[in-house]
C-alpha cells in the first residue's frame, strides 16, 4: 500500500509539473509580449513593464521563479487588470464554484444510483424503459442546451428561479441540474448494467436459496459489489463536473472560477490562464487521487502494483 501511494504521488507530481511546463511553453509561444495588444504603449513604458514583471530574464529563470511562486501558492499578478493578482480571482471565484461543484456531486450521486437500481430491478418493465430513455437523452444533449432550456422555461416563462446570479439558494438549482445531467445519465446506465450483472451471479442465487429477504440480498450482497465500477469512474466524473462548469457559469452568470478562466482565455490574460490551469489541474488530479485511494480501500481484491 505504502509503495503504491508513493508511486501515485510521484506520478501526480510529474503530471502537474508537465502541465505547468506545457502551459508555460504555450503561453510563450504566442507571438508578442502580453502588453502589445493594449493601445499605444510607448517603448519606454513597455520596457518598464517588462522590467517590472521580470520579462527580460531568460526563459528558464522566468519558469523557475514562476514555479517557486506556485509552490508558495502565489500565481503572480494579472497582466490585464492592474492591481489584481491571480490569487484574487481564485479566492473570489472558489466559494461559488466550490459550492456549485459540491452540491452537484451530491445531487448526481443521490439521483443516479437510485435511478440505476430501480432500472435494474425493474429490468424490461416500463420504469426501466423510462429511466433509460431519460438517461440516453441525458448523454446526447449538450449541457449548454439543457441549461438554456431550463433557463428559458423556469426563469423566463415561469419566473420560479432568478435569471442570473446566485444571491439566493434558488440560483443554484438550475445550474446544478444542467451540470449534473450528463453525469447522472452516465452513472445511472453504469449502475444499472453493473447491478444486472451482479444479480446474475451464483452467490446471489445462494443467498436466495438460503431464504434471505430480497431487500437484504440487494442491500448487503448485490449493491456493494455493483457499486465498484461506479466508484471507478467517480474520479473522471468529478473532473467532468468541475470543467463542465465553464459553460454553465457563463450561461447563468455565476461569478465562479470557470467564468474567470474563460474570460482570461478570451482576453489573453496570460498569467491568469496559467495560474487557473495549474490550480484546476491540481484540484482535478487531487480529486482523482482521493477517489482512487478510496476505491482501493473499498475493494480488497484490487492489488496495489
Amino acid at each position: 500500500m505504502a509503495r503504491y501511494l508513493v508511486k501515485r504521488v510521484l506520478i501526480m507530481i510529474l503530471t502537474l509539473f508537465m502541465i505547468a511546463l506545457l502551459t508555460f511553453c504555450l503561453m510563450h509561444v504566442v507571438p508578442g509580449s502580453p502588453f502589445t495588444s493594449q493601445k499605444q504603449v510607448s517603448q519606454a513604458v513597455l520596457d518598464a513593464l517588462n522590467a517590472k514583471y521580470n520579462l527580460d530574464d531568460p526563459l528558464w529563470k522566468q519558469f523557475v521563479d514562476y514555479m517557486i511562486g506556485v509552490l508558495h501558492f502565489d500565481f503572480g499578478p494579472s497582466y490585464k487588470y492592474t492591481g489584481k493578482t491571480v490569487n484574487d480571482f481564485i479566492e473570489g471565484g472558489m466559494p461559488y464554484s466550490g459550492t456549485l461543484g459540491l452540491i452537484t456531486l451530491v445531487f448526481v450521486l443521490l439521483m443516479s444510483i437510485p435511478m440505476g437500481i430501480v432500472a435494474a430491478l425493474r429490468n424490461g418493465k416500463w420504469q426501466d424503459m423510462l429511466l433509460m430513455f431519460l438517461a440516453t437523452l441525458g448523454v446526447t444533449i449538450p449541457s449548454f442546451v439543457i441549461a438554456t432550456g431550463l433557463l428559458y422555461i423556469f426563469s423566463f416563462k415561469l419566473g420560479w428561479t432568478p435569471v442570473y446570479g446566485v444571491d439566493s439558494w434558488k440560483g443554484y438549482i438550475l445550474p446544478m441540474i444542467a451540470m449534473g445531467g450528463y453525469s447522472i445519465s452516465f452513472l445511472a446506465r453504469l449502475m444499472r448494467s453493473s447491478l444486472l450483472e451482479v444479480m446474475g451471479q451464483d452467490y446471489i442465487r445462494t443467498a436466495r436459496a438460503k431464504g434471505i429477504s430480497e431487500v437484504r440480498i440487494i442491500w448487503k450482497h448485490a449493491l456493494r459489489n455493483a457499486l465498484i465500477p461506479v466508484i471507478t469512474v467517480l474520479g473522471p466524473t468529478i473532473a467532468n463536473l468541475l470543467t463542465g462548469s465553464f459553460v454553465i457559469e457563463k450561461i447563468f452568470a455565476i461569478p465562479g472560477l470557470g467564468g474567470y478562466f474563460v474570460n482570461s482565455v478570451t482576453q489573453r490574460d496570460y498569467t491568469t490562464i496559467m495560474g487557473m490551469t495549474i490550480f484546476y489541474a491540481t484540484v482535478l488530479i487531487a480529486m482523482i487521487f482521493i477517489v482512487d485511494i478510496f476505491y482501493c480501500l473499498i475493494d480488497p481484491r484490487i492489488k496495489y502494483e
Partner: peptide, 8 residues
C-alpha cells in the same frame, strides 16, 4: 484534464 487543455 482534457477539457482544460483543449480550451488552453
Amino acid at each position: 484534464p482534457d477539457m482544460l487543455l483543449v480550451i488552453l
